[in-house]
């Protein structure tokens, strides 16, 4: 009963957060900016996307359906497939004048997931050393004193 209530509250938080923040500066909707690009020219945008191409020495960043040629980083500094966050001002012709950016390679992201799995395994091991499942009550009980 309590558990069902908590799950309902969790659902409310997920919907509440989406209603409050989807499409805002914090979580911009790249697809809707793409659909009406000219109306957004001059706005600042913080977009998380992927490097999808380099054209005329410029990096192309794509998030959802929105593709932007960015002034930074330089093409030589990235590879197609890198994940990138870029912050800057939208300019005519689907360009973004970069203020700041950060790039992560697919290899680095894979390594991050691998060490994260090691972290989860550590937590699981540490937890099960101190707690066990009581099959009578179907709950975790402390092993202390056993």
């Amino acid at each position: 009963m309590i558990l069902a209530g908590l799950c309902l509250v969790l659902g409310a938080l997920i919907v509440g957060f989406g209603g409050q923040f989807n499409g805002t500066d914090t979580y911009p909707d790249a697809g809707s900016i793409d659909a009406d690009y000219d109306a957004h020219v001059g706005e600042t945008l913080h977009v998380w996307g992927a490097v999808t191409a380099t054209e005329d020495g410029r990096v192309v960043v794509t998030a959802d359906t929105l593709s932007l040629r960015v002034t930074e980083p330089e093409a030589a500094a990235v590879s197609v497939g890198d994940q990138i966050q870029v912050y800057g001002r939208l300019a005519p012709g689907r360009r973004l004048v970069t203020t700041a950016y950060d790039v992560q390679s697919p290899d680095a992201i894979r390594n991050m997931y691998l060490v994260s799995i090691a972290g989860i395994a550590l937590v699981g091991g540490a937890f099960l050393r101190q707690w066990r499942v009581d099959t009578d009550r179907w709950a975790f009980v402390p092993r202390e004193g056993e």
Binding site: G16, F17, G19, N22
Partner: peptide, 23 residues
């Protein structure tokens, strides 16, 4: 209906997930 699982990664998310964990 708009939704965002980023809600789990907030104070509210922590409190509710902790409640579920405590159960």
């Amino acid at each position: 209906v708009a939704y965002s699982f980023w809600a789990l990664h907030t104070l509210g998310g922590v409190v509710v997930l902790s409640g579920i964990g405590a159960m």
